[in-house]
Design a protein around this nucleic acid. Structure first.
Lengths: 235, 235
DNA sequence: TGCCCTCTGTGCGCTAGCGTCCATACGGCG
DNA sequence: CGCCGTATGGACGCTAGCGCACAGAGGGCA
């Protein structure tokens, strides 16, 4: 049996709550299995459930443009989907798509609101989480402006690696191009360069992270900064 | 004498509060005059005061990179600086510099926290404001990725125009380049194109907006989307 | 075994924006 | 009036990434 709080809940935000409140919230949650490409939220639509991924992860993309979407954030077991309810807004700000299939905990909007009213710890933890999200969005805005594709790709792979809890996951170049807002060919070039450096290996959509530290060195500092921000605020 | 709430407070967020609470907060505020280039916050530093600009405006920039800073948000009388206190974090996430000199209302961190405890309207309004900020950051991330400099420049000029409440303001190409994260020469080219189209006029740092609707057409949709988001949430 | 679909790699010309250096022009101040 | 600092404009070659079109290479399935 798992005995540390993280394993008990499977989600780091919930793991930070005092046992009593965590238990109450876990009891209210419903375990669900998220499927790849499932759409969990559309911008402007009402939020029906919040999700705490445990071994799944979710991509948030900016409202599409002529050029297609662009991923601006990734949510795994370190976060949650639907935190804007903390701000009193029950409208989803962004498009949310399941990017890595797997289990998550789900809670209805009203039940989540009730918990927010009851638990000041939940408020504290989620406030910090929203703050982290703000920081990371600002970082991403700068990243998109300045950093070369290869570095951005490395960052993205590391972020996914952290959330997938596995060194192999399935992602095609096409999909990566879509997430990073570039041509598929651009990904092919950047990815093959990373592969030449033995940092990753891939084959028909299966990507393996071979050398996380090396990949971190190849990534822009955004990755390290994001992690530092998180660790500082939610240790 | 001004008689509408906005004129009474000079800041749109405060104007949205019920008269009683607005009065109480206004009484606690200290009017200050912000000077151009004054630094109001540094990332990682403790927040000492929150600011409600009335006729001034403040630039938020992402932590600098090898390439220099990059503006990710602009705060004028439609917003405030220091809203992260609402999230329970008293550390500034970004660099804040006065971009347009002028008056603002200032409140000490503790006084602001007290008001947050007392006023649920303040919580509601600021929650929505933080939500808007989230949306706009995501939008900006995509904007930086996809949109051409001329459109981004037009967007920036319009955002400043809205906050300056004047059709002329002082900004050199050099400074614009810094804000948008590009070369000064790039700004010169984009700006002279806008001038050729009679959308703006400039001369040694004095920029005049000649044709706001025309400029809106030249800008990317981000500008219109940002405004729509704001108007939907804080009418 | 053969077929077809999906994934990856390559080549070509093109554009936006880069880095750099130099040229002009305005305007305040001595 | 002249000088100099600041603001703007232009020219150079260069690179990252674009759009497009096509070629190969697995791999699942009939």
């Amino acid at each position: 049996m798992p005995s540390n709080p993280q394993a008990l809940s499977g989600n780091r935000l919930l793991a930070l709550l005092p046992p009593r409140e965590r238990k109450r919230i876990l009891a209210a949650c419903e375990p669900v299995e998220l499927c790849f490409a499932e759409i969990l939220a559309d911008p402007g639509e009402r939020i029906r459930h919040v999700y705490f991924p445990t071994r799944s992860f979710i991509s948030l993309t900016a409202p599409p443009d002529v050029h297609g979407d662009l991923e601006v954030a990734l949510i795994g077991d370190e976060g949650m989907l639907g935190a804007s309810l903390l701000l009193g807004v029950d409208i989803s700000p962004l498009h949310a798509v399941v990017q890595g299939a797997g289990p998550a905990l789900r809670l209805g909007t009203q039940a989540f609101r009730d918990e927010l009213k009851r638990s000041s710890s939940l408020n504290r933890v989620l406030g910090r989480y929203v703050y982290i999200t703000l920081c990371q969005l600002a970082q991403t805005a700068a990243c998109n402006r300045f950093h070369l594709l290869e570095a951005r790709l490395a960052r993205w792979l590391l972020m996914t690696y952290d959330r997938a809890h596995a060194d192999t996951f399935h992602i095609t170049h096409d999909f990566l191009a879509y997430m990073l807002g570039v041509r598929r060919v651009g990904i092919t070039k950047a990815a093959s360069s990373l592969q030449l450096q033995s940092l990753i290996r891939y084959h028909r959509g299966d990507i393996t992270i071979l050398d996380p530290p090396g990949l971190t060195a190849a990534a822009c500092e955004c990755y390290a900064l994001d992690r530092a921000t998180y660790d500082r605020l939610l240790p």
